[in-house]
Design a protein around this nucleic acid. Structure first.
Lengths: 360, 360
DNA sequence: TGTATAGTTTATATCGTTAGAAATACTATA
DNA sequence: TATAGTATTTCTAACGATATAAACTATACA
């Protein structure tokens, strides 16, 4: 009965290996041997020791073990915003995958700030962490040398590229191209794109915009800057605002590629507020295939980026680096660059793929 | 530079305090004093030491410090599912609040399993963690003795209650009562409730159902079991299914209390699929005031449980326990039980509060 | 009985930091 | 120039685990 609650340290003193050793009448090393399943321990002493462990309620002191072994079994995951479904989903998958490999995850939201992202890289806590999975948003190619750290690092996305560290990315260009081509195949001819970041060269926004342009081009459609609605943030309210700005300016497309699902949700809202219908008046396609997309009305056609594969790959690559192994059969000195393939999930926010151009 | 990538350990050897001491020509303790901002260090030696630190790129070894100090600065947050917006939001706030107090957070999703929840409590890693914020879903009052652990613990919600540990909860009963009363004030008379857990005595579902019943009772309306649609899970698909089951059975309420926003989103979907309109035919009110609720169509009236206050309080209480201080002016031996007050956020999924009963 | 062989246990150094006490250097005052 | 008093620095012992190598035990075989 923990009647503790005395002042000072909140936790009672824990028994150590020494205590167990004394109780079992053996040496500390023997206790350690038992705890670590060392082969050559006689079953009689093993029993004695286990009995003492149970009686005293012994648990290994992890920081002490960490100090001795030089690693902690903790990795860090730096993402812009844990409250965003996309990153919550990613975090959840990374945690799950890490657990399978015996590691735990310290999630570090960088909150859309440059300092936050730099701190995640260079923060003072790095001896506490075996490696880092890093999803930059503010940092770009100019900062590439900041990423040349001396601990295992896996970078997510295509915002920053270098042959000095490992990458895992989703198919941004291909996915957006696919989305655009699909809208065209359903009869759309004036396709808007929502959520671009003007001036940006890398990063999801630029890449997805590029895919959009490639999609138009392959179909022989002209790129019309009037149909581009930028938005720095990608929350739903930004989708509402961006789409409003188009419609209020009298620009009425027959299809919309939203650069993520939350923008798309806002786009749906905006279109409906303007008294139009999706997909009859305007088709909308999103990106991320977030869990929510199926519950919007109408349910949202979206590009699924294969987040699970991203989580799986990045954790495994990181683990290999931590162990000093070469991940995915890379040559010595070579680094991973892996793109996870995307797929199209068709729902109700786009018209069917027949060539008949109804309504306008 | 970093042409490392040799086999074995992935990280180069790091300089220690000893190295810094040698480089600066002082003792190890002096380096430690500088690092820890000890008052009585002459500015000249402080300078020497800092110079050496920068030149060698020294960083403190956190596990070693942890071992010596007996704490890690890491707390654990056990929640059912990080991919659920409610918990993602909570986690995000807990991380933010912890950071302010100099702590980091290990998020541990228990994934709707009893074993997961028990492991979060009794897992072998507890010396690595200073304390735990614990949001149980599967464990109930029968398991209360499982929670009598010997490390600082703050329990979220009202599922499990004991005067042996600290609690922070949201106003489940009051919130649902408020929601129900509000629907009644807008003219609703046949109010369904979506997402109950039959047989459950504690936990959000039971408490919110209780609030719903109290709301009816105070208005003199009878409780009608036909208007209750249970659902074990609270994802949107469950809201769709539950509402479908009512409507398909010919039970058409004029108002719906959904026990969370995701259920509510599903309810909206279901109603619209049945050719009815919200709020003209049926008013819908949710619970959680998730970020999404404002982007549903129509935007969702919801009960805001004050998650931020929950995060703030629970982290602060935990920190006090870790420090051996008494939180929130509790008497020695007494524990915190704090309910964070909820509020109603009115949006477009409910009719206006005039007494005029239009439609039906 | 002696000796090699394999199985089992132990003594002790070490990981990198912090902390208490002891030692030394400085400053001001008599 | 002592001398007390304070400021600064150092010495050394922890914290609790793991690991090397040495020291025992058995067992087997000659």
């Amino acid at each position: 009965m923990s009647s503790a609650t005395s002042a000072g340290s909140a936790r009672g003193v824990m028994p150590t290996m020494k205590d167990v050793a004394k109780a079992a009448g053996v040496s500390v090393k023997t206790v350690s041997n038992v705890v670590n399943d060392y082969e050559f321990v006689s079953s009689s002493t093993r029993e004695k020791v286990n009995k003492a462990i149970n009686e005293l309620g012994y648990q290994v002191n992890v920081p002490a073990r960490n100090l001795r072994l030089g690693y902690t079994g903790i990795i860090s995951l730096a993402i812009p915003d844990l409250a965003m479904p996309y990153f919550a989903q990613l975090s959840s998958l990374v945690i799950e995958e890490s657990k399978k490999l015996g590691m735990r995850v310290l999630v570090e939201p960088t909150l859309y700030s440059r300092e936050g992202e730099l701190e995640a890289l260079h923060g003072s806590q790095h001896s506490m962490i075996d490696g880092l999975i890093y999803s930059p948003l503010e940092l770009g190619m100019d900062d590439v040398e900041q990423l040349e750290v001396d601990y295992p690092l896996v970078v997510l996305g295509e915002r920053i590229f270098s042959d000095r560290f490992d990458h895992v990315a989703t198919e941004n260009v291909e996915g957006a191209k696919h989305a655009t081509a699909y809208l065209i195949s359903t009869g759309c001819r004036r396709i808007a794109v929502i959520g671009t970041h003007p001036g940006e060269k890398l990063g999801s926004a630029a890449l997805r915009l590029d895919g959009y342009r490639q999609g138009l081009e392959e179909a022989g459609l002209d790129f019309d800057p009037k149909l581009v609605a930028p938005s720095r943030m990608w929350h739903r309210i930004d989708g509402v605002n961006a789409m409003n700005s188009l419609l209020d300016a009298g620009v009425v497309p027959d299809g919309v590629v939203a650069l993520n699902d939350m923008l798309a949700a806002g786009v749906l809202h905006s279109i409906q507020m303007h008294g139009m219908s999706v997909p009859d008046d305007i088709s909308v396609i999103g990106f991320d295939n977030s869990e929510d997309s199926q519950y919007l009305s109408p349910s949202l056609t979206s590009i699924s980026p294969g987040l699970k594969a991203v989580a799986r790959l990045s954790v495994r690559v990181l683990k290999d680096r931590i162990n000093g192994d070469r991940p995915l059969n890379t040559a010595p000195g070579e680094h991973v660059f892996r793109k996870v393939s995307s797929s199209l999930v068709v729902r109700k926010s786009t018209r069917s793929v027949q060539g008949d151009e109804q309504s306008i």
